[in-house]
């Protein structure tokens, strides 16, 4: 048992636990956290694989940026929206288990039995240009320059695509301040609307505030969360 083995076994087990936790969690937020956990462990494994650049990127890009993006979207969609674990498609779970086990078993037995890998180590490669990052930079800006340039096009396309998809046309002209104040003054709701989550068990954006008499107030929710109250969702779960 050298140091690498110790680190590997601990992080490997953590990573598998994280992955399983992602699949088995009922709530999306929990899944996201499990994924972040597994990814951090993977970053540690990259260190043992003599890839410090990848390890850093893994933490910065994946756990830092991508997973945070996931959490933002979860905020929009509703932090509390939990998945029913009841399967609706007939035979889906059974077949998925069967195929998953078969695929995994075949993959692992194949890896274990047929490939005898030599551990060449990256000491030489990392040392060629004075470090791992320098070595990767050399490859990216020489041999893989074209691919690198193409990824820039891919990224800009993705950004524009995301903007186009998330964009909504304004159908009515923007209301002026005068209109807004008039609206507010001459409707029944003079006071500001309650914020979501006030006095409730969650402060998530999709949790309605509780009124003094204990009834949830739909008016406290942003528009896209109204109507689909917790009661409705619960009813949906039962029927499905």
């Amino acid at each position: 048992m050298n140091g690498e083995s110790v680190v590997f076994w601990i992080t490997a087990i953590f990573a598998v636990v994280g992955a399983l936790g992602m699949v088995l969690s009922r709530k999306a937020v929990h899944s996201a956290l499990w994924v972040a956990f597994a990814m951090v462990n993977l970053a540690v494994l990259y260190f043992t694989l003599q890839a410090p650049f990848l390890a850093t990127t893994q933490i910065v890009v994946y756990t830092g940026a991508v997973m945070m993006l996931f959490l933002f979207v979860l905020m929009i969609v509703g932090v509390d929206s939990s998945d029913s674990l009841l399967e609706t498609l007939k035979g889906q779970r059974l077949l998925a288990t069967l195929f998953g086990l078969a695929f995994g078993a075949l993959l692992l037995s194949g890896v274990a039995s047929t490939i005898a890998l030599r551990d060449n180590g990256l000491d030489v490669a990392n040392g060629d240009y004075g470090g791992n990052i320098q070595g990767i930079a050399h490859l990216v800006f020489n041999r893989y320059l074209l691919a690198f340039e193409v990824t820039s096009a891919l990224l800009i396309t993705a950004v524009i695509g995301a903007m186009v998809l998330a964009h909504r046309e304004r159908w009515a002209p923007r209301k002026t301040q005068a209109e807004l104040s008039r609206e507010r003054t001459f409707t029944s709701q003079v006071t500001p609307l309650p914020n979501p989550g006030v006095l409730a068990r969650h402060n998530a954006v999709d949790t309605p505030a509780l009124l003094p008499d204990g009834t949830p107030s739909q008016a406290s929710l942003p528009k896209q969360f109204r109507e689909t109250s917790h009661e409705d969702e619960a009813a949906k779960e039962v029927t499905s």
Binding site: V16, A19, F103, V111
Partner: peptide
């Protein structure tokens, strides 16, 4: 190094399983 590959295989299979059984698009 086979151990790393086996770990990768396990994680990949779990991921694939998750794609097939979970219904929440984010998961």
């Amino acid at each position: 190094p086979n151990n790393y590959l086996i770990l990768a295989g396990i994680l990949f299979t779990i991921g694939a399983f998750g794609v097939v059984v979970r219904r929440n698009a984010i998961i």
